[in-house]
């Protein structure tokens, strides 16, 4: 299960809306081992594409270093689908390489309604999980 603060959900959705019709992507970092997403980092989509995303390699190194220095890890890795369901595509599954991350997908295909879903992706296997949105962590 993913438990996440409403303010972070709002930031992810706003980022996805802002970059539509291109895919948006980013990270929510949190203390290592806590499973608690805390710090939102919007990443550039180096592909600038409506059907593909890739973190810019230089920006990724900087952000991963920073997380290392702060004893954080990528608790959530998110990206948007702009014309299809918020479900991991075949490429999403084949490139998923952070075994501890919650992979969040947002769909912006509907301008009025947003789909926000979370998955674990491990060894090519996708498992959808429940998302609990809270006002603040207990």
């Amino acid at each position: 299960m993913l438990t996440i603060e409403r303010a972070l959900v709002d930031l992810i959705v706003a980022h996805a809306r802002a970059d539509h019709p291109d895919e948006a992507c980013g990270v929510i970092a949190g203390p290592a081992g806590s499973d608690r997403p805390v710090r939102h980092i919007a990443m550039a989509n180096a592909e600038r594409s409506p059907t593909f995303y890739r973190f810019d390699s230089q920006e990724q190194l900087k952000v991963w270093r920073e997380m290392d220095d702060r004893d954080e890890e990528p608790v959530v890795i998110y990206h948007s689908h702009t014309a299809t369901e918020a479900y991991p595509s075949r490429t999403d599954v084949s490139y998923a390489a952070e075994p501890n991350a919650h992979y969040v997908l947002v769909s912006t295909r509907d301008a009025d309604d947003v789909e926000f879903r979370s998955y674990r992706i491990l060894d090519g296997e996708v498992t959808e999980e429940e998302v609990t949105v809270v006002d603040a962590y207990a």
């Binding site: 592909e47 593909f52 890739r54 390699s57 991991p88 595509s89 490429t91 999403d92 490139y95 390489a97």
Partner: peptide, 10 residues
């Protein structure tokens, strides 16, 4: 040398 998996998908 640092190795990182690229974060990418469709």
């Amino acid at each position: 040398v640092t190795i990182l998996p690229a974060v990418a998908g469709g």
